[in-house]
Design a protein around this nucleic acid. Structure first.
Lengths: 113, 113
DNA sequence: TCCGTAATTCTGGAATAGTAGAAACATGAA
DNA sequence: TTCATGTTTCTACTATTCCAGAATTACGGA
């Protein structure tokens, strides 16, 4: 990950509604959930949620897929992990060693792939 | 970590200068570096750097300590790890299991403790 | 005590981000 | 077609953040 990617991911997550949305999607796992379900849980107006989702989309933290009338949104775990790695990169490089990065790896993406 | 803490940490990191500063401090390890050294590497006006450092301070991502005329700033690794854990918390809870959190643990804090 | 350096606070103008109503678009069903 | 539902785009208003010059405080040395 480059700095720009990290910045846009961090920026996307640094807002109450977006962080809540993202964490909800992380909890939901690889199946994700529909925009409507999300909207209901977060209790924000549709236009507001869309604006926030767009920020998360541009940051590549979530992806979505139309299923008929519904749009299903899922967290992009790879991007999250890349961000975590970026943040801990070079940890203590000037001094001593210390353990490297994290990981959250969902085991399958039900249905697809 | 509570949501407020995560938000303020994420917000603090979601700015080019602050992210660069923070990463530089992570690289510096437990010894940190002086505000002046940091200022020179980042090449920003003093007032601007102070403003950014204050954001990182409030977020508890860095801590500092006066040493005579110089102020030595260090990354707060515990806070970083808490943030990483927060972000991956409940990963896939609705679906299947997946590995938990990360860590960056500097082995000693030279001099102090 | 006076000076120089390190860093901070104060300040206000410029730029950016958040909010949500209303209108529009997309899809599936009748 | 026409209709209802899900979601997005458009838009304008408001609030917040960014920036950096100038003034100020903190400290150590002569």
């Amino acid at each position: 990950m480059k700095m720009d990617g990290a910045l846009s991911a961090l920026n996307a997550l640094s807002h109450e509604t977006r962080l809540a949305a993202y964490r909800r999607l992380v909890k939901a796992g690889p199946d994700g959930m529909s925009v409507g379900e999300l909207r209901e849980e977060l209790d924000v107006p549709p236009a507001t949620l869309t604006a926030h989702l767009n920020v998360l989309r541009v940051a590549d933290l979530v992806q979505d897929q139309r299923e008929g009338r519904v749009i299903r949104v899922t967290a992009n775990f790879d991007q999250m992990n890349a961000l975590l790695a970026y943040l801990t990169e070079n940890c203590c490089a000037d001094a001593r060693q210390c353990e490297p990065a994290p990981v959250c790896v969902p085991h399958t993406r039900r249905g697809t792939r």
